[in-house]
Design a protein around this nucleic acid. Structure first.
Lengths: 345, 345
DNA sequence: TCAAAAGTGTTATCCTTACACCCATGT
DNA sequence: ACATGGGTGTAAGGATAACACTTTTGA
């Protein structure tokens, strides 16, 4: 149908490139030097005692104890039946527990800043995953670390984090004054527009100067901090390679997802009180919907249904226990905790 | 900090696995047979004459003309500076035009159902991309194909597509009656719940039996059709490998994205009428917001601003021309065409 | 003159937000 | 008694959806 369009117009010069010759079956794709090792890395997240926790890799005896890492492994197609299956079996191997939700994040080509295992290749493919696990199953003995130890400026549950006011904001302002424009963040390239000025980027990412703090810009903020040389301020755990960025991506995706898919319930026991549900949502998102409106919202949308049971020792009046109402997924297009984003910064 | 947790508890048996030994630096990761060729595939989308079009690969002279393909290429780290750069230069090579928006979709490990180029390896990594391009620049001579030629049941602009009523629904109903349960869709595994019954899956994906048609479940629908053996009904173009699924993923992502990021403007000329904007949105989403409310919505949110210019020959009264108001991105957390999803099926 | 699209205005309804207030339990 | 969380009600405000109607062009 389109057989002869390729070389019929003025684009002929650009189009007689290698791939077109491949398409025409004239050359075999070179594969020898063009194969890459693939590394799967997971941010396994749970909520324990109202804290969002991420599973780290237990440090080997020969390693520096200052640098944490997410569980990761080389993907071997011969051993595994697909990427997801490999990821699952890998987490099972570490925790002895099964995984609920598993979602792929993004893939990057990492030039090896190889600390250990300085192999032959200088480049590998890194695929990040977000995984969710219930606290009940998540053995306490595993090396869980609070997500907000690694990304402390993301925790707004007790109001604006001090580290933002005390360290980050001044640092960023100083950086913004140094040079204007010429930036190159991911979103800028994506939207193909002229570069944003540094102050504008601060406004967009950190809500400075009257802007709003957007929950979901976790990655943008991390990137901007790294660019400004503030990557390591107030961070309890250094992380290996791009693992910190994978965690940021995971948190961003989780925050987005919790709003329109019922993924919170992957973090909760099958039976819970509405307050527990709220605390779990807040652990992920921050203190948005502080009021009892949360209850109406969540009951009104048919996301949960009451059980006959009651929990005592709540600190107050006994609470009705609820369960996730699976049927919503058949009823509504985007069933999730419909909480708005964007708060004053 | 966590140095000795790994082998301190009851999980010791599971945890003395290969990866832990790697972590401890005892074994080098094997790389020889565990490297994979990487293929980048893009769904380059534009809107021409109110039709969403996807760029295909011009067919080589030696190839079957019945099977279309998306532009794709082997990634060679030695030649390219990162995945995105490779993707961009690849599209530039075919079209001679630059690309606006580029976003990574998902990565899969494809067992080679190798039609051509039966190489040595039996498995490769496939990374999909969504790219957007303005119609003005998109040379007409290139082999654009309507997205709805490939996924015809997704086009609801003239009401419920006939193919749904005539072919797909009866086919699916017959399939649903054959066997119950035992399904294994992606979302099911993700949410870790018991399998949905076939009728429930039909209800969720295709809005049968009183359910709603969810715009964004493009991939679920394609998967379900394939599973039901209806993958090829009414399809104008067969596509190679997983390219059809990549297009479905791209359309799903674009539909989601258009609602909360100003990506529509990547498909429009810098200056446009509100009607053109609406037609473009409808080309992607379907006929949701049919009324003049669309104007209020889009003006009210500050997404566009009027220019002094006017377009005549619109078929009616001359229309004011608008431009995208870049500043919204600094003002609002999720600036996009805030159109609700979910219509009666 | 008519069709087609641009543009203005109004109203009903729903959803969110905020506030106020009572209930039941453990300490 | 009182602090803490559970639970109910209602009223104000904004956003959306639906409708009706006028204006301006090209054919």
């Amino acid at each position: 149908m389109h057989d002869d369009i390729g070389n019929s117009t003025g684009h002929g010069s650009q189009m007689s490139s290698r791939w077109e010759q491949e398409a025409a079956g004239r050359i075999e794709p070179r594969q020898s030097a063009d194969q890459l090792p693939v590394e799967l890395t997971a941010a396994v997240i749970t909520v324990q005692a109202d804290q969002p926790m991420v599973l780290t890799r237990p440090l080997g005896r020969g390693q520096l104890s200052g640098e944490a890492a997410l569980p990761s492994e080389h993907y071997r197609p011969s051993e595994h039946d697909g990427l997801e299956a490999a990821m699952r079996s890998r987490v099972v191997a570490q925790t002895g527990l099964t995984l609920g939700y598993l979602e792929q994040l993004s893939t990057a080509c990492d030039r090896d800043a190889g600390t250990s295992s300085a192999g032959a290749s200088d480049c590998h493919l890194s695929i990040g995953y977000l995984a969710l696990m219930r606290a009940e199953g998540a053995a306490k003995a595993l090396p869980w670390v609070s997500c907000y130890d690694i990304l402390p400026w993301e925790d707004w549950r007790s109001g604006r984090p001090e580290i933002l006011t005390d360290v980050i904001t001044p640092g960023l302002l100083a950086w913004a004054e140094k040079t204007e424009a010429c930036a190159s963040s991911a979103e800028q390239q994506q939207l193909g527009r002229s570069a944003l000025s540094r102050p504008d980027r601060l406004r967009m990412c950190f809500g400075l100067d009257g802007g709003r703090w957007d929950d979901e810009r976790v990655v943008d903020r991390l990137d901007l901090l790294e660019e400004a040389g503030l990557g390591q301020v107030g961070v309890g755990h250094r992380m290996r390679g791009d693992h910190r960025r994978i965690l940021a991506t995971a948190l961003a995706r989780l925050r987005a997802k919790i709003r329109n898919r019922p993924v919170v319930f992957e973090l909760l026991p099958p039976i819970f009180t509405l307050f527990e549900l709220q605390k779990t949502v807040e652990a992920i998102l921050g203190p948005h919907l502080h009021k009892q409106n949360f209850r109406r919202l969540v009951e009104g949308t048919g996301l949960v249904e009451p059980t006959d049971e009651v929990r005592t020792h709540t600190g107050g009046r006994p609470a009705k226990l609820f369960r996730f109402r699976r049927e919503v997924m058949l009823e509504r297009p985007a069933p999730g905790v419909g909480v708005k984003s964007g708060r004053a910064a």
